[in-house]
């Protein structure tokens, strides 16, 4: 499968801050790729390098078979971008901004635009300054989604949207995926990522620390087991965070060690057992807080 985005060893420093530190990122055609990481990890910087707004200090960057820095104008006809913090021109109406950005990108679909304006419940006649944060975000989203392009770059696109509008956005991305478009979605909202993304990359301190499908990542997480035993528990090895309260035990276990742990439990006789499936949240928490992997 060919890669729409391919970055390797990308470094970018601002003064003394090393925003990207040997970043590798591959996004293949037709996938919705989640891009997660704590504040200041370098997500926006990565996307701005891809847009040719920032010049990488080192490493190679390819996007849509071009060089984002040198071929910026040509590449930008084939992509749409939504920043996380949209600022509009105070004396232009939302409708004007949507049309302008669409035209500058090389045209937008009128009926799609009308449809999106209705779904996002935007009043396009308001002037830039009169929009609330969420409504400014909607203007940029509509402008991007109304263009039919190969690649969509979203940098925390739903920040400030209410849950209803978030759902509309989720639907829209679903439609993009159905049409075979490629999406890079930076987000802090795990539910959004779980629902939308085929693959995710987790970035920390300017480096991608984990990448794969959700199933692969889930595999890396631990299942939480709570069991009431008939006899006293003995010899539970290879588990984490073991808590014993009489005949009741609670612990986490790596997916690989699950089988062995259950064998040991049944040795003491099991009265009841609940298992909590691994959540991505836990995985992210571990990466975000920098706890031992």
């Amino acid at each position: 499968m060919n890669n729409v985005i391919s970055m390797s060893g990308v470094t970018k420093t601002f003064g003394r801050t090393r925003a990207l530190d040997g970043l590798d990122l591959q996004v293949s055609a037709g996938e919705v790729h989640g891009f997660l990481g704590p504040n200041g990890a370098g997500k926006s910087t990565t996307i701005r390098v891809l847009l040719g707004l920032l010049r990488a200090d080192a490493g190679t960057v390819r996007m849509l078979d071009g060089d984002p820095w040198k071929d910026a104008v040509a590449l930008h006809r084939r992509l749409a971008y939504v920043p996380g913090d949209v600022t509009l021109w105070p004396n232009l109406s939302g409708g004007e901004v949507i049309d302008l950005l669409g035209r500058l990108r090389g045209g937008l679909d009128k009926s799609r635009k009308a449809d999106l304006i209705e779904r996002f419940e935007l009043d396009p006649r308001k002037k830039g300054r009169a929009y609330s944060k969420g409504n400014r975000q909607k203007v940029a989203l509509i402008a991007a989604l109304a263009s039919d392009v190969e690649l969509y770059l979203f940098d925390e696109p739903t920040s400030g949207l209410d849950p209803l509008m978030e759902a509309v956005f989720t639907d829209c991305v679903g439609e993009l995926r159905a049409r075979g478009r490629t999406v890079l979605l930076s987000s802090h909202i795990l539910a959004e990522v779980e629902k939308l993304c085929d693959r995710v990359s987790i970035i920390r301190d300017g480096r991608v620390v984990e990448t794969g499908t959700l199933a692969e990542l889930r595999h890396l997480t631990r299942t939480t087991i709570t069991a009431e035993l008939i006899g006293a528990p003995n010899g539970l090895s290879g588990v984490h965070g073991l808590k014993v309260d009489g005949n009741r035990v609670t612990f986490q276990v790596d997916s690989g060690d699950l089988d062995e742990a259950l064998r040991q439990l049944s040795a003491s006789g099991v009265r009841s057992l609940t298992s909590q499936p691994p959540t991505l949240e836990e995985l992210f928490m571990r990466h975000y807080t920098g706890a031992a992997r």
Partner: peptide, 26 residues
């Protein structure tokens, strides 16, 4: 008070220069 604007851009508003005009004309 801010007033309402058009729901669609005029056909001419399709270049950086046209946008700059909107900012510089005042």
């Amino acid at each position: 008070p801010p007033s309402l604007g058009p729901a669609e851009a005029a056909p001419g508003l399709s270049s950086p220069l046209a946008l700059a005009w909107r900012m510089h004309r005042g």
